[in-house]
Nucleic acid binder design. Sequence first.
DNA 1: TCGATATTTAGATAATAATCTAAATACAAA
DNA 2: TTTGTATTTAGATTATTATCTAAATATCGA
Lengths: 91, 91
Amino acid sequence: MDKLFKALNDPTRRAILEQLRGKEMSAGDIAGCFTVSKPTISHHLDLLKQAGLILAEKRGQFIIYSLNTSVLEECFAWLLKMTEKKKGSAL
Amino acid sequence: MDKLFKALNDPTRRAILEQLRGKEMSAGDIAGCFTVSKPTISHHLDLLKQAGLILAEKRGQFIIYSLNTSVLEECFAWLLKMTEKKKGSAL
DNA sequence: TCGATATTTAGATAATAATCTAAATACAAA
DNA sequence: TTTGTATTTAGATTATTATCTAAATATCGA
């Protein structure tokens, strides 16, 4: 949960996730969408991978990244809990 | 959006939001639930307020905080977009 | 094998963020 | 109006994070 919220906290990382929506991309393709350096993108990809939000697959000299939204369920569940009325509460 | 994700990134702040579920609490009440100092809690409350996640109302010498989950809609919407299948995509 | 490409790792730096203590402010009650 | 309680603000410190350049690693193609 901690890693998930941490991963989602950065605007560049959220933008990476949005880029990955509906298509796979190599690390270089992803880096090409942003102005920050490739090592920086590589670092963001690492954090996203640690959070389980993306999957990495090596294909030849490329590393292909794809989105994994299943881990967002945990985030959804927490948000849902927060928005639901608590039992026995007036609020 | 940025402030929202930032506010949700810290475990103490998420715990504060959970405490506030179903009941209003003074700043002191909230601080009493945690081991960190009162100024630290005050700072967390400020960030939560900036994100619109809590409301503050002064009552006499107390400041009463309450949850405002409506801003979480934005977060929900983003997560939903991410989990939805993109139009014209194979994934 | 050698040179080019793709990506990461290492190491450094600068910006943010969490936390603390001490002091300031606001209010209440005596 | 003085004392005590509630809370925040100021200022400093430490930890974390984002970012960069340079170097290392891995793979491809000639």
